[in-house]
Design a binder for these strands. Structure first.
Length: 774
RNA sequence: GCCGGAGUGGCGGAAUGGUAGACGCGCACGACUCAAAAUCGUGUAUCGCAAGGUGUGUGGGUUCAACUCCCACCUCCGGCACCA
């Protein structure tokens, strides 16, 4: 049992803060602004477990800290509420996703509120709100205008279980990231966004970001820029005049001993009428089938191939070399054809060894550049990143603001008629044929109207019939720009007012889990596009990124219904109070590190807060803790700024230990309350207001540490002899070297290990250490 | 295979190249109590009665001094993957 009733404090202050609007952000910031943002959650039906609020607690501490330091803080919260789970819930229970989502949001709000988070709820947003997705649709129309959104019929990844097309980023290997089904390649009419146009800028601007190095590297690899060249190899009696190969090693062209093409390319030759033997056809078919199948990436598949009977001419020496079909050459990568140089490429070497093809060593005396210019190569930059497959054949997403006329010509819906509302349907079931459930609603799909002078579509009852686009946008659409909306959440004339954009953006600190190669790629892409059309004034959306480590269950597994190991923050708040939950989650491990929950360890944080509360009974007029107090203020200030919450708390624990053992004044105690306030807002507010008769600790100013007080009067010097620790002694701060040496001679350690011998060398680190070398 | 990150007590973890294990949990003993819980106090890397020795994944190196820097390797976690 604690000495105070945390339930009373929690509820009292949470309501009071709400009523006094102490966390409401001004429309425009003053001199100092900071925009602190959490990756907004998907409001699932299961509610929060204790892992979810970890990041929110951190941003809460950070924004309270900044507010106390005189900043105007934008710290908002919203809901990323489109997506498959709500839809699947709807299908199962025949409840409209909107209804389920609303209920879940209310539950989430209450759970977050109970933790005492300082969000400005007047700025709450929801991606499924038509007032919000109006602007998601608007961005799409702008992308289309600039030629960055286009339709394609290329085969795309199709998840047979989710019954929708997917982007490369939605895959885990060759499985659907959501459900784990192996995806198929399926030709499907698709909306695609030209993210590749921004690849170079996204790569270059990574350097400007204060992000964890690992994320930057992951993005760099995902974008996967490679510089190389393409060369034409003429074919003798082939299906086409020449085959085009891509290489990053043009300098090895003289060592090419065969050409290898993908089964896909060979199939296209057959499709266009070229005759090949049954054996070859069979090989192509089985290879294509194999490549579709599940890959175990830990094992490199065995290489197979077949000779086509065709020969190619190496453009650098007119040598006649055979053309093979090989399973290690993959359609869709590069040109789908390579020149094989077994002497300088391990894969080519394996293949050549297997099929007894020649391996030719050469002298590499020409540079890549020389080879390109001399042998009519073409310099080519390739990216691993693919254009963003942007349409989903599902119900619960943003409708496209797109119609077609009877000839199939595409028009964007006029801006004045946005948003295109997501209609009610009877069945949310997806279909097998790649049609969205929306396609079944004929009186929505067929819409009368006309084309304006600007070339956009407007509705009119006496107009011609147009057909609406029935796909919806992917889950990542809303989250690609939502952070902009918080600065101007109720604007219905523009996505964001330019003055507010300049005032608040960019996000100064962005906190969340690992979305290195999806959300953080997509949002950067859209932000750069919005920069190009003048909506935003910064080239990057998130200046600083802090990753959070997840909280595992006590058994070391992920918290999940399936394992029955979920810990609900509501229960923890009830038993220990919001402050204890907050302090414990920040103390349990370094912020960015994954750690397991411990029901016994949390008691330590609870005890700590109780001791802080009880300290007020010990207030005296003498202080023995000045140095330590000011050291702690310094440490906590620095640690919050760098997200080292665990060591900040540890420093405060050390201070409290000293305060218990020694004596301290009321002023000392109030300073402790102030630096603890961001971590434990309820308890500190209660005691602060009682003792000081002040309005709120949270709008007061952050304590400044006194540099003079941090300086110790006496320091403990470590005595080393020959590098080994042989004792300690105490001297006044900043004692001269000769004093240190004299003092060290008085120690037992010196007498024992040095005695009358003359030291070879003496190394002195002022205020710290003396090392006598013998 | 490539690219990241990490290996420290029974556990979570702390250490600008300068007393390794701060702080917390757990455990042991003691105080309070009829008793228990809570609370408080003391102890808690390891070998040794002690003096002292050994210890931060392994093996080398640099240095007066290495968890920290360099080289080689092992293990675990994450990402990418026959990308030409």
């Amino acid at each position: 049992m604690k000495s105070y009733d945390h339930k009373k404090f929690d509820v009292y202050w949470q309501e009071k803060w709400l009523n006094n609007r102490i966390y409401e952000t001004p429309k425009f910031p003053g001199l100092k602004k900071v925009y602190v943002l959490d990756m907004f959650p998907y409001p699932s039906g299961e509610g929060l477990h204790v892992g979810h609020p970890k990041g929110y607690i951190a941003t809460d501490i950070y924004s309270r800290f900044k507010r106390m330091n005189g900043f105007d803080v934008l710290h908002p919260m919203g809901w990323d509420a489109f997506g498959l789970p709500a839809e699947q819930f709807a299908i199962k229970n025949k409840i409209h996703p909107k209804v389920a989502v609303q209920k879940n949001i209310e539950n989430f709000e209450q759970q977050l509120f109970n933790i005492g988070l300082d969000y400005d709820w007047s700025r709450e947003i929801d991606t499924t709100d038509p007032k919000f997705y109006k602007w998601t649709q608007w961005i799409f129309t702008k992308l289309y205008e600039k030629g960055l959104a286009f339709e394609s019929n290329e085969p795309i990844n199709w998840c047979p279980s989710c019954k929708t097309g997917l982007a490369n980023e939605d895959l885990d290997g060759n499985r659907c990231e959501r459900c784990g089904s192996v995806v198929e390649k399926k030709p499907l009419r698709q909306w695609v966004l030209k993210i590749t146009d921004y690849a170079d800028r996204m790569l270059a601007d990574l350097d400007t970001l204060n992000w964890p190095e690992g994320v930057k590297i992951a993005q760099k690899n995902w974008i996967g820029r490679s510089e190389g060249a393409e060369f034409n190899f003429e074919l003798i009696d082939g299906p086409v005049k020449s085959v085009r190969i891509f290489t990053t090693r043009a300098d090895t062209l003289f060592g090419a001993t065969f050409v290898a093409v993908s089964a896909e390319l060979a199939q296209s030759w057959i499709n266009s009428g070229f005759k090949m033997s049954e054996e070859i056809k069979k090989y192509i078919a089985t290879t294509l089938e194999e490549q579709k199948k599940e890959n175990d990436y830990s094992v490199i598949p065995e290489k197979t191939g077949i000779f086509t009977g065709i020969y190619a001419i190496n453009p650098v020496n007119q040598e006649k070399i055979p053309v093979w079909i090989a399973n290690y050459v993959i359609g869709g990568v590069g040109t789908g054809a390579i020149m094989a140089v077994p002497a300088y490429d391990d894969r080519d070497k394996d293949f050549a060894t297997l099929y007894k093809l020649p391996i030719k060593e050469i002298s590499l005396d020409k540079t890549v550049e020389e080879m390109i210019s001399k042998f009519k190569g073409e310099k080519v930059v390739r990216y691993k990143i693919q254009d963003w497959v942007f349409a989903r054949q599902r119900y619960w997403g943003e409708p496209f603001p797109v119609v077609r006329d009877e000839k199939g010509k595409v028009y964007m819906v006029d801006e004045s008629e946005l948003p295109v509302l997501l209609p009610e349907v009877e069945s949310y079931e997806p279909t097998d044929n790649g049609e969205s459930p929306l396609a079944a609603i004929t009186d929505w799909v067929n819409v009368k109207g006309y084309i304006t002078d600007k070339g956009t579509f407007k509705q009119s009852d006496d107009g011609k019939i147009f057909i609406r686009e029935t796909n919806t946008m992917p889950q990542w659409a809303g989250s690609s720009w939502y952070y902009l909306r918080f600065a101007d959440p109720h604007n219905d004339k523009a996505l964001i007012d330019p003055a507010l954009e300049k005032a608040w953006l960019p996000v100064d600190v962005y906190v969340g889990g690992d979305h290195a190669t999806r959300h953080l790629i997509y949002a950067r892409f859209w932000h750069k596009f919005l920069y190009d059309i003048g909506v935003v004034s910064t080239i990057e959306p998130f200046s600083r990124l802090e990753f959070l480590g997840f909280i595992l269950a006590e058994d070391g597994r992920k918290m999940s219904k399936r394992w029955g190991n979920i810990i609900n923050p509501d229960d923890v708040v009830k038993e220990y109070g919001a402050d204890t939950l907050r302090v414990y989650e920040m103390f349990m491990a370094p912020f960015e590190q994954t750690a397991a929950w411990s029901t016994s360890s949390i008691k330590g944080s609870d005890k700590f807060l109780d001791r802080v509360y009880n300290l007020q009974k010990k207030i005296s007029t003498e202080s023995t803790v000045q140095t330590e107090l000011h050291k702690t203020i310094k440490k906590v200030t620095e640690d919050i700024e760098s997200f080292k919450f665990n060591t900040a708390i540890s420093a405060m624990m050390i201070l409290v230990n000293s305060m218990e053992a020694g004596s301290f004044t009321k002023e000392d105690y109030l300073l402790l309350l102030q630096i603890l306030a961001p971590f434990a807002p309820h308890l500190t507010e209660q005691v602060w207001c009682e003792l000081k008769n002040d309005k709120s600790v949270h709008i007061g100013s952050w304590p400044k540490f006194d540099e003079k007080k941090i300086v110790e009067k006496e320091v403990t010097i470590t005595l080393q002899i020959g590098g080994k620790m042989r004792g300690t002694f105490i001297v006044p701060f900043q004692s001269a070297d000769n004093i240190l040496l004299e003092e060290s001679k008085k120690t037992d350690g010196y007498k024992k290990y040095v005695g009358e011998n003359e030291p070879k060398n003496v190394i002195i680190v002022p205020n710290r250490l003396i090392n006598i070398v013998i």
